[in-house]
């Protein structure tokens, strides 16, 4: 399924990044995510939402977030979560199942 999507590029990655204010870890995570997506995915192949829980803390409960920063891959299913500042590019790519050979 996901293979087909990636081949024809029909379904973009939908990513949500939960951060809490401008902490070093949050800032690092945002920067790392943008870099990884920019380098390994073409434009339009991904969609990033950054949610600052400091602004809307109730979302932590609604979206069941515990750790900060948390990256959630909403699409394609199944939902996948990565916690941490995303400093290891390879691990992020594996976890998001992004085929880097292309």
């Amino acid at each position: 399924m996901s293979e087909t999507n990636e081949m024809n590029g029909a379904a973009p990655l939908r990513l949500t990044l939960y951060v809490a204010g401008q902490t070093p870890k949050s800032v690092a995570a945002i920067r790392n995510l943008e870099r990884i997506c920019g380098e390994h995915l073409g434009p339009g192949r991904y969609l990033i939402d950054v949610i600052d829980l400091r602004q809307s803390p109730h979302l932590a409960r609604e979206h069941n977030i515990v750790a900060i920063p948390t990256l959630v891959r909403q699409l394609p299913v199944p939902i996948q979560k990565i916690i941490g500042d995303l400093s290891d590019t390879q691990k992020v790519l594996v976890s998001l199942q992004i085929d880097t050979s292309r």
Binding site: K25, A67, K81, I83, G84, L86, S87, D88, S95
Partner: peptide
């Protein structure tokens, strides 16, 4: 469904 990449805390 959880992977850990890098530093994090339980602020949430």
């Amino acid at each position: 469904e959880l992977a850990e990449v890098g530093d994090y805390d339980l602020e949430a």
